[in-house]
């Protein structure tokens, strides 16, 4: 790993400031992708802005019929959360299938979606459930958030704060994991809820997307 300046801001505002101030800053959320990349010396950011000290970014609540999940909430927390399990069990199941137990104890929803790995689970979860990504600047519907392979609508100094999920009538997530990496070879989230029937697929392309011809005539 190349060395870097480490920042541990206490608020999102400070984090954004640190990010703007850095010549080549990088946000550290759970670090389960970023740290291995740094270890392999495949990136050399000047500054690491660690969101681990911002308590406001953690936690899950139900609000206005939505499930609201802080960006720094770990996969294990989502997987084990009673509210998520009751309201969107498919989302809990999705979180429970990411990586392995230790990765789930560190990896976060915000980190996962900001990274937007083409084989990650959460992007399909967000698109398939019609979620909204909230940042320090604006609200972005999931459909507009994931742009391409590792590309999101996030601007340079934009930080994901919260993700809100409308509660569907029913939903399910199924994935075929790569036997080695356990990333999704393909993962599909299907939901039926306030936004109609939604289908999203991860792994089978550069980003999570609805399939070209959703079966049974379902569409957005």
């Amino acid at each position: 790993m190349y060395d870097f300046n480490h920042h541990r801001p206490a608020s999102v505002e400070d984090a954004a400031k640190a990010l703007t101030g850095a010549s080549d800053g990088k946000i550290l959320a759970g670090g389960q992708t970023l740290i291995p990349t740094l270890k392999q010396r495949l990136a050399s950011p000047s500054d690491i802005i660690d969101l681990g000290g911002i308590a406001a970014l953690k936690g899950i609540k139900e609000e206005g019929g939505n499930i609201v999940i802080g960006a720094m909430t770990t996969h294990a927390t989502v997987a084990g959360d009673a509210t998520v399990k009751a309201k969107i069990p498919a989302l809990a199941a999705l979180a429970d299938g990411i990586g392995d137990a230790q990765v789930r104890n560190r990896g976060t929803i915000g980190g996962s979606i900001a990274n937007n790995d083409p084989a990650a689970d959460y992007p399909a979860g967000l698109v398939g459930l019609g979620a909204t990504v909230h940042t320090n600047k604006r609200d972005i519907p999931a459909d507009d958030f994931f742009l391409g392979m590792f590309e999101t609508a996030l601007e340079e100094d934009e930080i994901v704060t919260v993700v809100t999920f409308p509660v569907p009538e029913k939903a399910a997530y199924a994935k075929f994991a790569n036997p080695a990496s356990r990333y999704a070879i393909v993962g599909v989230m299907v939901s039926s809820g306030p936004a109609g029937v939604r289908v999203a697929v991860t792994g089978a392309g550069p980003r999570a997307l609805p399939p070209r011809r959703p079966r049974g005539g379902a569409g957005r």
Partner: peptide, 10 residues
């Protein structure tokens, strides 16, 4: 946690 995937400062 995997201590190889966590910074000491974290």
């Amino acid at each position: 946690v995997k201590s190889c995937t966590m910074l000491a400062v974290q």
